[in-house]
Design a protein around this nucleic acid. Structure first.
Lengths: 238, 238
DNA sequence: CGGAGCGTTGAGCAACGTCAAAAGACGTGG
DNA sequence: CCACGTCTTTTGACGTTGCTCAACGCTCCG
C-alpha cells in the first residue's frame, strides 16, 4: 500500500510500473521546500536520500574563500538528487532547491531492503546513476570546450530534452523556473554575460525567455548553435 | 585459480583481499597498449569492460566539427576505465591510452555472474563508480570556476593524491607520463597557456616538470594555489 | 510611493586564445 | 659520434572573449 501517490516521472521511466511501485512504497515522506533552500550540506553524514518529484534542484560546490557558488548539476523531476549519499554516506557538495520543489524522502535502510529484495531494480537504479555520471561528463565538456553562446544554447537544449522526458510538455515553449543567474552559475559565466548571450539568441530569432517560460523560435538552429546531441542523455531505445 | 597475477591497486583498495581475488578471477585477459591508442569509440556496443592496471588512460569527447578532443577524465591504475559500459552497453565518449598502458579485460556476462554471487562486492563496485562521479563533478567545477593557474595546480595535486593512493611513491616527486598537451586538454586550455602556467609554477618555486617526472618543491603552497581539498576523492577513513 | 530583486547596457580591462617562430628533446640511421 | 626529422616546449605579438564595475530600467510587492 503506497502511502504517497506519486506519478512515475523522469528517469524513473527506466523502471517498470511494478518496480516503480516497489520503490515508491519505500518513500518515507514527501517534503515541500521553497526556492533557494539548502537541503543537505557538504560533509554532513546522511541517512536519507531524496528523489525530486517536482521543481528544480541543484548540486552546488561553494568556495569559502571567494564566496562563489558553482552549480555542477541541475536536477529535474524524476532525478535522484543525492542518491549517491546512500553508498557514500556523505557528499562533496551542497544540495539546493532552485525553485519551489517537492522531494520524496527515502531512508537508506529501507532502500537497502528494497534493493536486496529486487536485484533487477537495484541494477536499474545503478544504471540511472551512471547516466547521471554521463550528464556530468557532458557538463565538464561544456565548461571546458564551449564558448558562452553555444554553451548556453546547449544547456537550454539539454533542459528541454530532459523535461520532455520527464513528461512535461515541450513543443515550442516550456516552463523553466530559473533565473539567468542559474544559467550563469551552471556555465561558469557572469550574469552580465549570460544576459548578453540571451540578447544574441533573442536577436537571432532562436530563443527568448520571458518570466519562467522559454520560447523556442527555431529549435533546429538552437541545437546547431549549441552543437546539441542527445547521446549523453541516453535516450530510451538507443 | 587466478589466471593473471595482478596486485591489488588504486580504488580497488576499497575491496577486501577476498573480494579482490573474486573479481580478478573473472579477468579474461590482460592487454597491453602503446600510447595514444583509442580502445573504444563513442557509440560502439560493448560486451567487455576494462580495469586499468598500469599507465594512464583518458575519456575523450571529440568534436567532429572543430576536431577538438576534450579530455573529460583521466584514469590512473586501479580505476575502471569504462565500467559504465557494463550496464549501459555503449558509451558517450572515446577511451584512449595516454601513455603505455596495461588493462585487465572483463566480460560483462562474467561480471554479472560475479556480482550476482556477491552482493557486497557489487555494492562496493557501485560505490567506486559513485566516487568516479564525484571526481567528475570536481572536473566540472574546475573547468567552470577556476582560472588557469589554480586549475593546473589543482589537477597536479589531484594526480599526486590519486597516484599515492594507487600505491605509487609520491613524496617530493612522482612519475606522470603525460605531456603538457594532456594537461591542456584536461583543463580546457591551450598548450601555450599551460606552458606559461608551468613557467609561473616553476618561477614561483612550487613545482617543475622534467620529462615524465613532476617535482614538487612546495606542496603546501601548491595545494594552496590550487585550492586543493581531498573530500571529493573520498579518501578512506573519512 | 519606495524598496528589493532581476535583467540590461556600456566602458575598460584582464585572461586566455591564436599565430608564428625558435629552441630543446629524443630517437634513428649513417 | 654526428646529422636529421619529429615531437614537445617555450616565447613573443596580437586579437578576442568574457569579467568587473557602475549605472539604469523594469516589475513586483508591501
Amino acid at each position: 500500500m503506497t502511502k504517497y501517490k506519486i506519478d512515475q516521472i523522469g528517469l524513473s521511466r527506466h523502471l517498470s510500473a511494478a518496480q516503480w511501485a516497489t520503490l515508491i512504497e519505500g518513500c518515507e515522506s514527501v517534503r515541500t521546500v521553497s526556492s533557494n533552500i539548502t537541503l543537505t550540506e557538504r560533509g554532513t553524514t546522511l541517512s536519507k536520500s531524496l528523489l525530486l518529484i517536482d521543481g528544480f534542484m541543484g548540486r552546488v560546490i561553494s568556495n569559502d574563500m571567494t564566496g562563489r557558488k558553482q552549480l555542477v548539476a541541475v536536477e529535474v523531476p524524476g532525478d535522484f538528487v543525492d542518491f549517491h549519499a546512500y553508498p557514500l554516506k556523505h557528499l562533496d557538495h551542497d544540495v539546493v532547491s532552485i525553485s519551489e520543489a517537492k522531494v520524496a524522502v527515502f531512508d537508506h535502510d529501507v532502500l537497502q531492503r528494497i534493493f536486496d529484495a529486487d536485484v533487477e531494480l537495484s541494477r536499474k537504479i545503478w544504471a540511472m546513476t551512471l547516466i547521471d555520471a554521463s550528464v556530468q561528463r557532458h557538463w565538464t565538456y561544456r565548461n571546458a570546450a564551449m564558448r558562452a553562446l553555444p554553451a548556453v544554447a546547449n544547456l537550454l537544449c539539454e533542459f528541454r530534452h530532459r523535461l520532455q522526458r520527464a513528461g512535461f510538455e515541450s513543443g515550442a515553449s516550456f516552463e523553466l523556473p530559473i533565473q539567468q543567474s542559474v544559467l550563469a552559475r551552471s556555465c561558469g559565466l557572469s550574469v552580465e554575460h549570460v544576459s548578453r548571450v540571451m540578447r544574441d539568441l533573442r536577436e537571432g530569432g532562436y530563443c527568448t525567455i520571458s518570466g519562467t517560460t522559454v520560447n523556442i523560435h527555431d529549435l533546429e538552429k538552437l541545437e546547431e548553435i549549441g552543437q546539441f546531441r542527445t547521446d549523453y542523455l541516453y535516450p530510451p531505445g538507443v
